[in-house]
């Protein structure tokens, strides 16, 4: 089953599964999302729980691989004070011209993208020179105990939802040609905010 099919299947109750994360991360996300400006590409909108934490009035193009997830996000998109355009698209093959976005935002997306470096290279292509990549992602911990737990759970999550808990996303960002400006921990050294420039 492809990642798209998996996410289409869990779209109806994905919001419930993320209830705790959404509440726990609200404050950190509000603070981090203040960096969003100009024309924004929001990669992997899902059901869109983060929209409530966006600053008002942004001009956003939101993409997702799963059309069912995008249907779930519609209510939040309608309630947002800015402009959000939904597009069914894969980050590994973006249908946008080069250098059109000021910011690209990804929230817990590059743990699931099948070819993360390729996806990040596409993101780099569509960013304007001097643009910003903002990521709110979970990664593999450097702590051996936490890492062992994540690697064990990875065997389950990989099969259930296509989510990898053992990725080194900061390294992937650099592999894609970005320069990391900041890499901060939100929970342990697992949930992180990463800001990078092309």
């Amino acid at each position: 089953m492809s990642v798209r099919e998996k996410y289409n299947r869990i779209a109806r109750f994905y919001d419930f599964l993320k209830t705790g994360d959404t509440r726990r991360w609200e404050k950190s996300q509000r603070e981090f999302f203040r960096k969003l400006q100009g024309k924004v590409l929001y990669v992997g909108i899902g059901p869109g729980p983060e929209i409530a934490n966006f600053p008002p009035g942004l001009d956003i193009v939101a993409i997702d691989l799963s059309e069912k997830m995008m249907e779930q996000s519609q209510r939040r998109v309608d309630a947002y004070s800015g402009n959000v355009r939904l597009v069914n698209m894969n980050v590994e093959d973006l249908g946008f011209a080069d250098g059109v976005f000021d910011c690209v935002l990804a929230v817990c997306v590059f743990c699931t993208v099948e070819a993360p470096v390729q996806g990040l290279q596409e993101v780099r292509r569509v960013l304007k020179p001097g643009g910003k990549l903002l990521m709110f992602e979970h990664v593999l911990s450097q702590n051996p105990v936490y890492a062992l737990i994540l690697k064990g759970m990875n065997l389950v999550t990989q099969r259930l939802s296509g989510t990898y808990l053992d990725r080194n996303t900061a390294a992937n960002v650099e592999k894609a040609g970005f320069r990391i400006k900041s890499n901060r921990n939100v929970y342990l050294d697992i949930v992180k905010t990463i800001e990078a420039n092309p």
Binding site: G20, R24, H138, V191
Partner: peptide, 16 residues
Amino acid sequence: LLPIFGAFEVMIPLHI
């Protein structure tokens, strides 16, 4: 507990 209280915040301590 995971959906209500957060994935990693539950998963890490409960495993230990």
